[in-house]
Amino acid sequence: MRSVLDHYNYWIAIILMVVGLYTVVARGNLIKRVIGLNVFQTSVFLLYISMGVVTGGTAPIVIDDPDAVYSNPLPHVLILTAIVVGVATTALGLALIVRIREAYGTIEDDEISQLEEPER
């Protein structure tokens, strides 16, 4: 039980991952899908940041103490990049939704499919 609780940050990451994926798949509203995508990506950010932790480590800023233990800064840097990618994806997704709404008058997936059907 303890070992389960000790890794609570990983459990949160897994829960968020599944919640996000479920939202993307199960929701017909395009905005909700983008939100689901965001939750899913955020879970990965948490996963990366969790793995950078070094037990007893301090923030990775050099201090005078020669015995200092630092956390691993690399995953943080990687995730900064991934956050930028995530923001760009969200922005593009929302921009597309605006144009979809202009073209179809709705952002519900099933209504869009109904509008698209006759064209085939």
Binding site: V24, R33, F40, P75, G93, I100, E116
Partner: peptide
């Protein structure tokens, strides 16, 4: 329909790329 096609690709493509990111992590 290009818009909905692009949106669909965006959702699935992002999931795919994020899966690769998890694997690399």
């Amino acid at each position: 329909r290009a818009l909905t096609a692009a949106f669909r690709y965006l959702v699935l493509g992002t999931i795919g790329a994020t899966f690769i990111l998890i694997g690399v992590g």
